[in-house]
C-alpha cells in the first residue's frame, strides 16, 4: 500500500457499546478509584482527632462510609455487567472475547504479538480484543472476591453472608488478608489499561477512547463492506 492511499483511507462509524455498558464502565471506574484511595486510608488511618486540642472531626468515619457507598456502586455495576455478559449485544457477550474457540484463541495470540511490536497490524477486533477481554473477565472475578470479602467484613453477623464468607474464605482475618492482597491488582490494572488505550489510539484511529462515551467506534470502510 502506498503512502497516498493510506492518507485517503476512509472510516465509517458504527455503534458498538450500549448505554447500559457505558453506565457500567463509568460506575465501575469511578467506584474503583474511590475504593482504592479510601481503602489505603482505612488500612493505615491518619490520626487527625484528639481530645487534648480543639480538633474534632469525623474524617475516618466519612472515609469508611465513602468506601462502603463506593462498594455498593461497584456491586451495582457488576450486576449490570453480569447481565450484559449473557444478554448484551454481540460485542458485550462473554463468548465474543474469551479464548473459547479456535478463532478467538488465534486472535489472542495475534494481539499479544501486536503488543510486542512483532506484527505491524492490529487484528482489528470490532469489540474487545480477546487479550483485553480475558483480562476483563479476570478483573471481574477479582472484583467479585473483593465484594464478597468486603461484605463478610462489613456484615459480620448477617446469617447468609457469614456462612458464605466463612465457607469461602475461612476466618475474618483470612478474608481481610485476601481483601488487602487483591487490592494491588487494581492500581496496576488501571495504569496498564490507560496506557494501552492511549497507545492504541495513537496507532489505530478507531476512536477507542471516545467510544466509551459515545458508544461509537470507527472502522475502515473496506472492513465494513
Amino acid at each position: 500500500m502506498t503512502t497516498k492511499s493510506k492518507n485517503s483511507r476512509t472510516y465509517k462509524s458504527y455503534h458498538i457499546w450500549s448505554w447500559t455498558l457505558r453506565i457500567f464502565h463509568w460506575t465501575y471506574a469511578i467506584s474503583i478509584i474511590i475504593l482504592i484511595f479510601t481503602g489505603l486510608i482505612i488500612n493505615n488511618p491518619p490520626v487527625l482527632s484528639s481530645f487534648t486540642v480543639e480538633k474534632a472531626n469525623f474524617f475516618f468515619s466519612n472515609v469508611r462510609q465513602l468506601h462502603f457507598i463506593a462498594g455498593y456502586f461497584l456491586i451495582s455495576a457488576m450486576i449490570l455487567r453480569l447481565y450484559l455478559l449473557f444478554f448484551g449485544n454481540k460485542y458485550e457477550k462473554i463468548a465474543d472475547f474469551i479464548p473459547i474457540n479456535k478463532q478467538n484463541f488465534k486472535s489472542l495470540i495475534h494481539t499479544i504479538k501486536y503488543y510486542l511490536y512483532l506484527t505491524p497490524h492490529s487484528e482489528g477486533a470490532k469489540g474487545h480484543n480477546v487479550l483485553a477481554g480475558t483480562i476483563y473477565v479476570l478483573t471481574f472475578l477479582f472484583s467479585l472476591i473483593m465484594i464478597l470479602t468486603g461484605l463478610y467484613m462489613l456484615y459480620p453477623e448477617t446469617g447468609w453472608i457469614k456462612s458464605l464468607g466463612s465457607f469461602l474464605f475461612g476466618t475474618q482475618q483470612s478474608a481481610r488478608a485476601l481483601h488487602y492482597l487483591l487490592f494491588w491488582f487494581f492500581p496496576i490494572f488501571i495504569l496498564t489499561h490507560l496506557y494501552i488505550l492511549v497507545w492504541h489510539e495513537i496507532r489505530e484511529p478507531e476512536g477507542l477512547i471516545s467510544s466509551i462515551v459515545s458508544g461509537k467506534k470507527f472502522s475502515r470502510s473496506t472492513d465494513l463492506q
Binding site: N44, P46, S49, F51, T52, A56, N57, F58, F60
Partner: peptide, 24 residues
Amino acid sequence: HFDEGRFAESFGDEGHKRGYCLYK
C-alpha cells in the same frame, strides 16, 4: 475512638496513654 480517628500509634505514646483505639 476508632470511628473518630483517635489512635494509639506506639506503646506508651500520647494516644496510648489516653486510651485511644489500638487498631494501629
